[in-house]
Amino acid sequence: SASLEDVKTAVLGLLVILQTKLYTLPASHATRVYEMLVSHIQLHYKHSYTLPIASSIRLQAFDFLLLLRADSLHRLGLPNKDGVVRFSPYCVCDYMEPERGSEKKTSGPLSPPTGPPGPAPAGPAVRLGSVPYSLLFRVLLQCLKQESDWKVLKLVLGRLPESLRYKVLIFTSPCSVDQLCSALCSMLSGPKTLERLRGAPEGF
């Protein structure tokens, strides 16, 4: 439990870093931090981490990651405290083949985003970082199938509809809506759902 406290501190630090690096160059920093966060949550489900502190780590990670939004130009952003989304000039939600690297070039400044813009690109060529939603999407499927803490599952179920409104997140990387529907149906009809959940409301 003591070591998990250190892990929790590290994860919180990564969330803060991602919130900053999403809007700064090099964009590969945001890509790497995002991948680290998603990989860490995957390990929770792989090794069945069920301690309360592990659940709190997942809760905080999902609470942040499910706020990711994308505009029509595929640029990622996060809402501010007033709910207004600021889109990044440097990070996009497109999935890119590994051989192309985590970044790609664009020939010049991008068109203005639909929300308040981030800082304008400084040079004639900007390297865009790929932060594909499919990585998070796979972890969300694991959550629906394996999550043991009701608070975490409730958060994910509550945030998913709003995330799905931003269709560009889903359609720019390999996210299977069929698998999502299947996971939701299995969660509702499967007898093991109630068996594994802690803290579920009576009558769920």
Rank of each mutant, 00 (worst) to 15 (best):
V92G: 06
E99W: 10
K145I: 11
K81D: 14
T50G: 08
A200F: 12
L180I: 05
V131T: 06
L140C: 08
R69P: 02
H74C: 06
R198E: 12
C143Q: 01
E202Y: 09
A27M: 07
P132E: 05
L76E: 02
A70M: 03
G77H: 03
L153F: 03
Y95S: 10
P117L: 11
I57C: 03
I170K: 03
V168N: 09
G190E: 13
L153W: 02
E5P: 02
P201K: 08
R196V: 05
V168D: 07
E195V: 07
V139C: 15
K8R: 12
V92S: 07
S176F: 08
L188W: 08
Y45K: 01
S176T: 05
E35W: 08
P201N: 15
L15G: 13
K8M: 11
D94H: 07
P161C: 14
D94A: 06
S130I: 14
K167C: 05
L18G: 02
R127S: 13
L25G: 15
G108R: 11
M96W: 14
S163G: 07
C91W: 02
K154G: 07
L78N: 04
L194I: 11
C181Y: 04
M187G: 02
Q19K: 12
K21I: 00
A10C: 06
S1I: 09
L155G: 10
V38I: 08
C185F: 09
K105A: 15
R69I: 02
G83A: 06
L135C: 10
P109A: 13
L14P: 01
L155M: 13
A54G: 04
G158E: 15
V16F: 08
S48H: 12
L140W: 03
T50L: 08
V92T: 13
E103P: 12
I57G: 00
T24M: 15
S130E: 07
L141H: 04
L25C: 13
K21F: 00
S102W: 15
P191D: 15
K21R: 07
T193R: 10
V11N: 03
S107C: 12
I53H: 03
S148D: 13
L14T: 07
R58W: 00
V11D: 01
E103A: 10
E97I: 08
L67F: 10
R159S: 05
T106E: 14
I57L: 09
S186Y: 08
V38C: 09
S111A: 12
L184A: 04
P132C: 06
L153I: 07
L140M: 09
L144Q: 00
I57Q: 00
E202F: 09
S130C: 13
C185G: 04
M36C: 08
M187E: 01
G13Y: 00
L169V: 04
Y45C: 00
Q142A: 10
S39Y: 09
P89Q: 10
G101P: 13
G199A: 08
H74V: 02
P116W: 15
D178H: 05
P132L: 03
E35V: 08
C93N: 02
S88P: 02
A183C: 10
V152L: 02
P201W: 05
Y34F: 14
S182Y: 06
Q179C: 11
I53S: 03
G129D: 05
T114G: 14
L169D: 03
S182G: 13
H44L: 01
V131Q: 03
A183Y: 07
I41C: 04
S134I: 06
S48V: 10
E97V: 13
S1V: 07
E147F: 00
Y45F: 02
K145C: 13
L141Q: 04
C143R: 01
